[in-house]
């Protein structure tokens, strides 16, 4: 069974139909890229998975998203449980600026009541920061505000914040779009490392990035899923004309 199964997923903003009948399966322990020009609905697709889309009062969703066979849109399900299964990293690094580095990682497990005591929390925070390749850089500054970190560090802190909840999958919404090339390549290395234990879905408008990091790739265009397959396949022998034009940079 695939980790995530999306079937007949539709989404609207008001009257605007932004996701059109999406069917998609995301296997385990791979990096899955969703690429497409801006405005094609890829961020919306990401937010439809962890139901963050519902923060937008104009958004409507229909269809199914299953994680490990459980439908996240089922009436019986607790929405906070859903969101804990999906860790999320955003386009703009968004640590809570008024909290310390430590508290940024600790806030999720602490408020969700996932740890029993302080030392367990300390261990969890350390583990998450190590996983995010940030521990060595911040271990002496844990009490300092997160806002003192550089953009790339802040983004890795956000990855640690997501990891600390022990999610089943990590959603990344253009995680390198606002970083300099060096910081961006660090994040990409980190993703490849994390793939050992996690499934990662990355949204990107940059086909080269999808080609570099992903194992599977989906091409989204104007709310429709045009093509999906193994990355090597899609980039070398695209089935669809639109995909071909996109990967060579003629759309975008």
């Amino acid at each position: 069974m695939s980790l995530v199964e999306i079937s007949n997923l539709n989404a609207w903003y008001g009257d605007k139909h932004v996701l059109k009948n999406i069917n998609l399966e995301i296997p385990r322990n791979i990096i899955f890229a969703i690429m497409g020009p801006s405005g094609c609905g890829k961020s919306t697709l990401l937010r439809a998975m962890n139901r963050l889309l519902e923060l937008n009062p104009n958004a409507k969703v229909s269809g199914q998203v299953k994680i490990d066979g459980i439908d996240v849109y089922s009436d019986k399900i607790d929405i906070t449980w859903v969101r804990r299964q999906f860790g999320m990293v955003f386009q703009i690094p968004n640590p809570f600026p008024h909290l310390s580095i430590y508290d940024n990682v600790a806030i999720g497990p602490r408020m969700n009541g996932l740890v029993k005591n302080k030392s367990e929390l300390d261990q969890l925070v350390k583990w998450a920061l190590e996983k995010a390749y940030l521990w060595d850089e911040v271990k002496n500054d844990l009490k300092k505000p997160a806002s003192m970190l550089s953009g790339g560090q802040q983004q890795r802190l956000c990855i640690a914040r997501a990891l600390a909840l022990k999610p089943k999958i990590i959603l990344m919404d253009e995680p390198t779009a606002n970083l300099d090339p060096v910081a961006a390549s660090k994040i990409e290395e980190l993703m490849l490392e994390l793939k050992e234990d996690y499934t990662i879905v990355i949204v990107t408008h940059n086909p080269q990035q999808a080609a570099r990091v992903s194992d599977y790739v989906a091409f989204l265009y104007m709310g429709e899923l045009i093509e999906v397959g193994e990355t090597s396949q899609v980039f070398t022998r695209p089935v669809h004309k639109l995909t071909e034009r996109y990967v060579v940079g003629k759309i975008g």
Binding site: N50, L55, F86, F96, H98, G108, M111
Partner: peptide, 24 residues
């Protein structure tokens, strides 16, 4: 984006608004 971050951590509405965002 901070609001999204708080919700993405799986926190309930009261926790998001009265704890995380209130301290912001």
């Amino acid at each position: 984006t901070l609001k999204e971050a708080a919700f993405s951590l799986g926190l309930s509405y009261p926790k998001v608004y009265l704890r995380v965002l209130l301290s912001t």
